[in-house]
Nucleic acid binder design. Structure first.
Lengths: 344, 344
DNA sequence: CTGAAAGCGCTAACAT
DNA sequence: ATGTTAGCGCTTTCAG
């Protein structure tokens, strides 16, 4: 039976405002009344209607989280971390997986507005074309706090890994190990900073950037990496190392190499990015750049909540860059070239 | 600016009821009025308030989905599939990851009720103790449609893979390949049917079930599998094959074997369960039982929606069992024993 | 076909 | 300290 505050009031012999008061701990209510009302609430198993409450308070206590793909380990973990951080602070997270479809992206953004999310954490942008910009603008205009994982959205606070530095470290790791022809597989679906870092590292070390060794693919999945490597090979250019925009791309590329009889790391050294769980399970264990997912999630939430407690006019735009860490394993051939054992 | 139906009515020179009518396509409204109202809505960028609407209609168009762990590939994919299926039918999915904590499980269940979810898809039960039962009962009592992935909740419809058959097939695959001492790692976190299937297969083929070869662990993760295998080894009993309750457990167990210098499949053949994406990436590629995740998700959604359209009294309890499929790869040593190439 | 009015269940002034 | 009343933004009778 769906109880309402009215029935509680009647049963307890008080007015509905009094019930509302004990419910919210507002104003002063006599100890005695409080107890009586509490007892009735308990007895009637009354639960205030969240929707009605929401309508008045204009606060859904819900945050929209938009990620490109839940079935991608990286996003699944990120979602979990964010949901936890939000839950501990009394918020519910509405996780939306766009499956990299701009239409869905736009639709979910719209839904966030329609359903009056208190805030939105947008992690899908690398893939978004101008369509999503509209959705994001609508959210900003409505004064709904918005934070992102992408540093390229004007006027939106973000938390990001230090990809430039991370990539630099990764590529320098290869250079130091003696590799000279380092290819890159990335694309719009992974942070553009990674491509820049790759170029920067080469240039800093006096290498010429060979555009033929750079392969931009559409997605960020295993299949994209696989395809990217095939395209790379069909170009006929030789390479002895490969840096990939994320771990999944690296897995796909390595798979494609295996199929072609190319050994990793003996023939080609490979470094990925993200350090998803599978990276250490993979064979060869993947050398990769670890992103501090828990920290990123936590900071994202803090940023959003801070924004939530500030009037739209005085909100500041923050860009928080978190350090990344190179995790050296087998795929980069460290053991081969330096005789050192790959760790972790 | 937050527009309301009132301002639209004023601007269009009609009553709010008329606006409401064109909004919902209810009743008959003159072509002319419709157009005028539509124009104003467009001009004012009016969007009806979902919350207010929800309060009246008593329908949130939101379904709660409770899974044990989003960062587990299996659940991430299942969540994605379900969210998609629901989205296409006009529902939003509130995905909740309990992280295998009974408290969170209970809290999320309560939240589903409080937030007036139209229905709940519960996928967390294998781990739930009696606590979650209370939450589930509350949901049932409230008349909220509920479906599950667990066949062991009385009075709740469910969709499950045919684990008994799947397991049977998997174990028989090992038996036929000539393995005689087959161990099992599973536990409360994976469907109990898998343990039964294991026992059944052994018995059917005239093998004695050696309780010492059965290792029940608490969780369903890589770490649990790793620990399970160590426990198995410390028992001192010999085994030449291992069947694991899921793929992650298998990965963990294989890792532990590697560390102990045991080769897979040469020394011990391994079969997992689920066929998560990593299973084919793993080395050795994992022989496993594939669950039809997309089908399960789709059926779950259909079952729920059917229930949604039926008054509580006439709802029927259905148990839908979907076939599973053995995917033979390298880890079970098929190539070794039969000279056949492991496929896919 | 359209408008007026009555709520949905709750909170928040405003009274007492 | 507690009751009364006015909405929140919308849908839905019930009258024209």
């Amino acid at each position: 039976m769906k109880m309402t505050i009215k029935e509680v009031a009647k049963e307890a012999g008080v007015s509905i405002s009094t019930v509302s008061r004990v419910l919210n701990g507002r104003d002063r209510v006599s100890r005695h009344t409080i107890n009586r009302v509490r007892a009735v609430i308990e007895k009637l198993q009354f639960q205030p209607d969240f929707v009605a409450r929401t309508m008045i308070m204009k606060k859904t206590s819900t945050i929209g989280l938009i990620v490109p793909q839940l079935s991608n380990e990286y996003w699944a973990l990120m979602s979990e971390v964010i949901q936890d951080a939000l839950w501990m602070r009394g918020y519910t997270t509405l996780i939306c997986s766009t499956d990299n479809e701009p239409d869905k992206d736009e639709a979910y953004l719209k839904m966030c507005l329609e359903r009056r999310m208190d805030g939105v954490i947008y992690c899908s942008s690398p893939y978004c074309g101008p369509e999503a910009r509209d959705g994001l603008d609508a959210i900003k205009e409505a004064g709904v706090p918005l934070v992102s994982l992408d540093p390229n959205i004007a006027g939106v606070s973000c938390v990001v890994g230090d990809h430039l530095q991370g990539t630099l470290t990764a590529v320098e790791h290869l250079i130091r190990a003696g590799y000279a022809r380092i290819a890159y597989i990335g694309g719009p679906a992974v942070s553009i900073e990674r491509e820049f870092g790759y170029r920067k590292a080469l240039m800093m070390h006096g290498y010429r950037v060979d555009e033929g060794l750079i392969r931009l693919v559409k997605g960020q999945s295993f299949a994209d990496g696989h395809e990217g490597l095939r395209a790379l090979r069909s170009s006929g250019l030789a390479f002895d190392a490969l840096f990939c925009g994320n771990d999944l791309l690296a897995f796909g590329a390595i798979k494609a190499m295996e199929e072609a009889g190319i050994r990793v790391p003996e023939d080609v050294a490979v470094v990925g990015y993200d350090d998803i769980f599978s990276a250490r399970l993979f064979k060869p264990a993947l050398t990769t750049v670890r992103q501090p997912i828990p920290d990123i999630g936590e900071e994202l939430v803090q940023l959003l909540l801070a924004s939530l407690e500030t009037e739209p006019e005085r909100r500041t735009v923050r860009k928080i860059v978190l350090p990344t860490e190179l995790i050296v394993r087998e795929s980069s051939g460290a053991a081969l070239r330096q005789g050192a054992e790959a760790r972790r």
